[in-house]
Design a protein around this nucleic acid. Structure first.
Lengths: 267, 267
DNA sequence: ATGTCTTTGTGAACGCGTGCACAAAGATGA
DNA sequence: TCATCTTTGTGCACGCGTTCACAAAGACAT
């Protein structure tokens, strides 16, 4: 442990900006890597590079947590790992339930990474009776009817939804009613929840669409202000045949593999 | 189609704020749902509710695209679907490659949702020879050595990385060298790429950690200043036993299932 | 044609997040 | 003890994004 403890008592709780909170896991990951290599200290410059952010931003982020650092030296790796872990609430055990054990749900459940950061898969839940009892990642799948009981008994407050879009809101409602107050949503739907419940969403389809936007912008560049360019090699590619929703009319009757898709993906 | 065409010529291209771009897919999804129900028009209020945003924000977002709306009436659903699709570049076909066909990669590949929005899985690529040739989602897995050739031949400009963390940067470099300029990264690593290449990351572990932070904040409330809510049992739960990385020392020697984990998950 | 009613489009104010740049703090060596 | 050198912590300014609030635009009825 580095410097003496002239640090602020605690968290200054409410004061940590959301943007900073979102970066803490990045810092933690970089610090853990350093820790495993037994690096004793890091400068804000080094750590920022490892985390892919600006060093000034990193210092400001840390300043919200308190003054953990030694001028002229840097930050004590182990100490900082501990402080950030504590700040993020990773020094305690978080039992989570995952609802919807389809392709994606099963893939997520199969990660060993859960346990390594204070998260423990307390239960896997599905609505398909034929799945029930079948072990996924060593954990037997349980039936959706027992959702409330499972949450109750395991003291779960974080839930992961990996169901089809059509089922997501219903599952969400039941989770919330049973006491879950943080939800990670992989279903392509907007969930509505009461105040006090946090929802974060992961949506591959949206990410791809954002990438497509930028990709299109890159392709249609050198031309001019307007739009109809499409020049270079990259552009040639973009000029592929197919067209989805190309005409306003074509979208109407469609009812593809979407509309009820399992998880991360679709629009 | 609603009003006459007093609209601006085109996109005002560069002018669309990033935050707006990130919401366009949400609007598109909501509009598509309306379209399928044959709803002819929506007001900003209704659509905003469906997309889970503020109506003023939605109107401002749309104003960046041009003036597609009729005062006193609202927006023409079909027309707006088309405009947003075009803006996002979804009226063209985007071939993508996915590298790393493990649990997660396979799960992602299995989504039918890809094709439904202009994205087409051109190839699945893995470094495990025993995977090669095996069909996943109806597409035979190809060997990593052919990566460059595959990208070239298919004119791929968007790549998805679902490899273990340790392989991600290397795969990324090869993708970029081969001409890919947009990457969706599921590996828990910070990728460094040259200018002009867009990277978006999806990281379950980070999302969970952010949720844990807020969950902890909710739990440890009553004592402090702000809001002593949480009347229910939720608070009791958070006071769980176990502790990960509870002591600064405990983190050092650890080398769990992490460190090289496949994809979305770990820290 | 005219008035009323609805809903858009946007000017303006505000707040958050970012990055610069520097003073203060501490380490280190003479 | 004092000077120098490194690196933190932060005051400040700037720009982006959000939200309010309202004038303008158009639909619709009379």
């Amino acid at each position: 442990m580095a410097t003496g403890r002239t640090h602020r008592p605690a968290t200054r709780s409410r004061g940590i900006p959301e943007a900073t909170v979102a970066r803490l896991p990045l810092y933690l990951r970089a610090l853990t890597a350093l820790s495993e290599r037994s690096v004793p200290t890091v400068s804000s410059e080094e750590l920022a590079a490892a985390a892919g952010v600006n060093s000034a931003k990193l210092r400001k982020d840390f300043s919200y947590l308190g003054s953990y650092g030694t001028r002229g030296v840097g930050y004590d790796v182990e100490y900082l790992v501990y402080q950030i872990s504590r700040e993020l609430g990773l020094t305690q055990d978080w039992p989570i339930v995952m609802v919807g054990i389809g392709n994606l749900g099963a893939a997520l459940a199969n990660y060993g990474g859960f346990a390594s950061r204070g998260f423990r898969v307390a239960a896997l839940i599905d609505a398909d009776p034929s799945m029930v009892g079948k072990p996924v990642a060593g954990i037997p799948v349980q039936y959706i009817d027992d959702l409330e009981k499972i949450i109750e008994e395991n003291g779960v407050s974080i839930g992961v939804i990996a169901t089809p879009a059509g089922a997501a809101q219903q599952v969400c409602d039941r989770l919330v009613a049973a006491g879950v107050s943080s939800i990670l949503n992989f279903a392509p739907t907007v969930l509505s929840v009461p105040d006090g419940v946090d929802v974060r969403k992961v949506d591959l389809s949206i990410e791809l669409q954002i990438l497509a936007f930028h990709e299109q912008r890159k392709a249609g560049e050198d031309g001019g202000v307007g739009g109809a360019d499409l020049p270079s090699a990259a552009a040639v590619r973009a000029a592929a045949p197919a067209a989805v929703a190309a005409s306003p009319a074509s979208t109407a009757g469609r009812k593809g593999p979407d509309g009820d898709v399992p998880a991360v993906m679709p629009a």
